[in-house]
Nucleic acid binder design. Structure first.
Length: 145
DNA sequence: GCCAACGTTGGC
DNA sequence: GCCAACGTTGGC
């Protein structure tokens, strides 16, 4: 069973990368998602999967990498049992944050959900897309690991 | 700040 | 079960 890759969107003013990093290895619920597609992707996530941390709105940057540390469970911020979330912890910052413009400028990334469905807040990333963005972010040497 | 795209709600 | 009305997201 291979690892899968994802992308989580956040608004810097609501939950920043610094907030995520401050949680350390304890991590934090990725709560507040009220969209079935996004929830279903979270249900598919396994411990050890990794995801990009993307800042929407003004920033439009992928700034870091998180890892899934708990699989889908009820969202503590909702009484509605329909809503679930995973827990994630920050793994590392990207030496060079990757902008939406950069992603859109690369034809290899034209099929990314981030490009095709800009409103989906939790989304899958293909393995080759993951590696390309990691490389853009200054993590080329990490890919060998 | 605008608005297109999309998701959700609720009346029928 | 359809679809109009409405609300929200997020790029621009």
């Amino acid at each position: 069973m291979s690892k899968h890759f994802w992308l989580f969107k956040s608004e810097n003013s609501t939950w920043s990368w610094e907030d995520q990093v401050a949680q350390g290895d304890a991590g934090e619920e990725w709560d507040g998602v009220r969209n079935y597609q996004a929830r279903n992707f979270m249900r598919d996530m396994k411990v050890g999967d990794q995801g990009f941390f993307y800042l929407s709105q003004r920033d439009r940057l992928i700034v870091g990498i998180v890892e899934i540390i708990a699989e889908a469970h009820p969202d503590s911020t909702s009484d509605d049992r329909r809503w679930e979330c995973v827990d994630v912890k920050a793994i590392r910052s990207l030496p060079t944050p990757v902008s939406l413009d950069t992603i859109k400028a690369d034809p290899r990334l034209s099929e990314m959900v981030l490009v095709k469905n800009s409103r989906l807040s939790v989304q899958p990333v293909k393995e080759d897309e993951w590696h390309i963005v990691c490389e853009m972010g200054g993590l080329a040497s990490e890919l060998k690991k």
